[in-house]
Amino acid sequence: MESINYQNFRIDAENICVDYNGKVALYDANLRLKPGQICGLVGMNGAGKTTFFNALTGFVNISKGKIRINGESVRSAQKDQTIAYVPQNEGIDSQFPISVWDVVMMGRYGSMNIFRTPRESDVQAVKDAIKRVDLTDHSSTPIGNLSGGQRKRTFLARAIAQRASIFLLDEPFSGVDIRTEKLISELFIQFKNEGKTILLSTHDMIHVREFCDLVLLINKTVVAYGETSEVFTPENITTTFGGISPDFLFGPES
């Protein structure tokens, strides 16, 4: 028997199932990602994309299967700040009385003392992260006064400040301006070169072709998984979206 070295995989999800009070949200899903890989997570609303993210971050418990992050459990990945989650803009309260600086500093909380007192290194990490997303002039701006793109960049900066090796991004391109889109795609290339692993969910088919080495098509379970050029076919997409033809999906509205 061939033995697999799990250490090689940043993310190794094997036959995972998630159910909410008996309702199955995701079943028999598999995913293996190595350092430096960017993978697109594509599926309809309710297909289990967010559930997949939640399982990887440990926000929901899996009822079956196994998840290894860098060869270790999800629990120890949490302790090591391995995974950063960048939420959808709709997923956060944009009226929360908090500044860009405060949000990015939250990326450091996991490695701070119980009072979350910033050390010199934390302050520096936050400064650098804010600079990388080009928000230095907006450090003290309340997030409620930001545009959608700036808010997205704020949460990206939080992930950078966290120094995570895995980035999970929920719809990173939805509702952002051209400038932010360009900046995010530049950051993706940098992250890739730094050996980070990126899993991003998206509705936009063009972005998948543009950025993703791999694609994971899901509809409650994995419909297809592999190299984007091989897997991202009209047939597979049609199956993923429950029989809707890709012509419709690639139409002017998508």
């Binding site: 989650y85 119980i114 009072f115």
Partner: peptide, 22 residues
């Protein structure tokens, strides 16, 4: 007072809190 910042994070973004082991 002790958990001031953690509670703020919990109210704002519990998913992030969980992700970083809080």
């Amino acid at each position: 007072s002790i958990f001031r910042k953690d509670l703020m994070l919990y109210c704002f973004d519990p998913r992030h809190a969980k992700t970083v082991g809080i």
